[in-house]
Design a protein around this nucleic acid. Structure first.
Lengths: 328, 328
DNA sequence: TATTAGCACTTGAAAATTATTAGTGCTAAT
DNA sequence: ATTAGCACTAATAATTTTCAAGTGCTAATA
């Protein structure tokens, strides 16, 4: 258990380091606490012993260890009020009735990326709440047509498909069948309904049923795939910890890799969660702060990626605010 | 006018520099031409006099100047045959009937980015050839609906719109009107037809005609906006000329700025054009090789961005090949 | 007259050297 | 328990040294 003074010192070191990005010495601290630098040094040595602080070399000041940051976010930080200006800018986005959820999210996360100089990510997908509302086809020429799928939440997806040797008649039949039988089905269950309710019927009435079935199956499969939006990647270049090309290559590579993002960013927890350094699997040098959101027919993750030396309080406040706003 | 030997030397210096990325000395050259290094040095001095070569410092080897590269691409380079493996990979993409133009383009440019370690850009838009085929609306709830626009080339665009105090009746009326009167109109002319043919009519029959008109106007306006796809941005990090954060910040900034891309990448010429260093307005350190393409209802630009020390022959060949393939 | 051998000279890059400075840990006094 | 005082450490920056690559020029040569 840390003493009150130790907590004060740890907190000061972390906040100073977040501000200045260089090791914090005992002098800086002792000015803000009424005691001598020697006392601070003793305490610092203890905190290092406990694994909460680190040195970059024998005679350097201290920087927080990952354990130190962890202690800070768990016990020491007190999320700030959202500053008025930030809130105003965000409100403009949320109050714009014209924007649909996804635009709203990307707009606000773009804003956050700008404000904080970190990188933000929206990882969204349609959820169980999204139910099939209507499917229609528009023929383009004898071999190509567009399939359009609309959900009750207003999501639209379209796909151009190439169908050789299939008459428009038969496709229309199938579309009518889908509109009759599985409208109202949650979008993520459509595939299976397609298999068990549609496939057997068209098997009897439609000549090229195998091809037709596969086509529609594919359309719905694509529909439920996730969409990924990474904003403010270039902000990484502004962070002093990313001062060499290799580190940049690594993190940029990860941030452009869909699989990497889906695997490492997706969050199943509804609280705001913080993953510091090795706690996330994206990059040891960064912290990821993220949360799952639900809104109408969609659920997904919003995340902020920044250096471990991140302004935790502010990011948590911002993320919380966005989450609240999109969920209502 | 350059002598034959001077051209040989210039060409060798450029190709070697492209390969090795460091200044080329007289020794390297004299091994490939049967004469002494002293002779080469004399010639080099002349080529420098002419502004075709540069030194990085008094006693360094030579690197090509922008004028040197220009001379090379205008007079010296001879586009290689496309190597079999590259061609095969590209053919797989082009032969995939399932892919629509846009996917085809981004897939192949992604491939090129991988093969060359440069960055590629597709800047596409619907063109005059794209004609309105059908428009439909799907109501979501009392105040929101989806407008879906399909063109004869198979482009689909949808937009969720928010319409308060407008009855579905009136919207349907407008949609029918559009489908009756302006189907078949090139997509980039729809806006004006909307104004002169639809607006006057709904002005008489539709109550909230002002709002309805504006909504549809907006839908079509969004439709014709350009889509931009930048692939392989991270490859820039692999180029030795981009070895400091500032340069990277600059070029990455440009490549993420839509306006910057539209202004500086759009190409109106149907040939393959090469813009070296200051000739392009993106970044003095890069060369942009690009061309305009036309395919079905779409036209746009495909471009490759790399260091001035770019493999000109190969990129030109690849771009030519892609252009040919998408245009047929 | 064009080419070339030879050599002094220049420069950048890398390695080694030398301050300088911020900060430590420890000891002894308070 | 706290603190003043001081020897000590290591990074950073500045300076010097060494090294290799490559030039330009001169004079000799074919």
């Amino acid at each position: 258990m840390l003493s009150e003074r130790q907590e004060k010192i740890l907190k000061l070191i972390i906040t100073e380091y977040i501000k200045l990005a260089r090791p914090v010495g005992s002098n800086l601290i002792c000015k803000q606490l009424k005691c001598s630098s020697a006392t601070i040094r003793n305490e610092m040595a203890d905190l290092e012993e406990l694994g909460l602080l680190e040195k970059t070399h024998t005679s350097s000041g201290r920087i927080p260890s990952e354990k130190g940051y962890r202690y800070y976010v768990d016990h020491l930080m007190q999320p700030k009020e959202l500053n008025g200006e930030d809130m105003l800018k965000l409100q403009i986005i949320f109050n714009n009735q014209q924007l649909e959820l996804n635009d709203c999210l990307s707009e606000s996360l773009k804003l956050i990326a700008d404000m904080t100089n970190y990188t933000s990510i929206v990882l969204g997908g349609t959820s169980h709440d999204n139910k099939l509302k209507e499917i229609s086809v528009v023929p383009i020429d004898s071999e190509n047509l567009i399939v359009i799928v609309v959900t009750d939440q207003g999501h639209v997806e379209n796909k151009k498909v190439y169908l050789k040797n299939v008459s428009l008649e038969e496709i229309k039949k199938t579309v009518d069948l889908i509109n009759d039988l599985i409208v109202g089905t949650p979008i993520d269950e459509v595939s299976s309904k397609l298999e068990f309710e549609i496939k057997p019927i068209i098997g009897r009435y439609v000549k090229e049923h195998e091809i037709v079935y596969n086509t529609f199956y594919q359309v719905f499969k694509d529909f439920s795939s996730k969409n990924i939006n990474v904003v403010g990647k270039n902000n990484i270049l502004k962070q002093p910890e990313f001062n060499n090309i290799e580190k940049i290559q690594n993190i940029f590579g990860k941030l452009e890799d869909q699989k990497e993002i889906i695997d490492n960013i997706t969050e199943e927890n509804n609280d705001i969660k913080i993953y510091i350094g090795k706690e996330n699997h994206l990059d040891d040098e960064v912290t990821v702060i993220k949360t799952k959101y639900h809104s109408k027919g969609e659920e997904g993750t919003i995340a902020i990626v920044g250096p471990k030396r991140m302004d935790y309080d502010r990011v948590v406040t911002l993320l919380e605010y966005i989450k609240q706003n999109i969920e209502k």
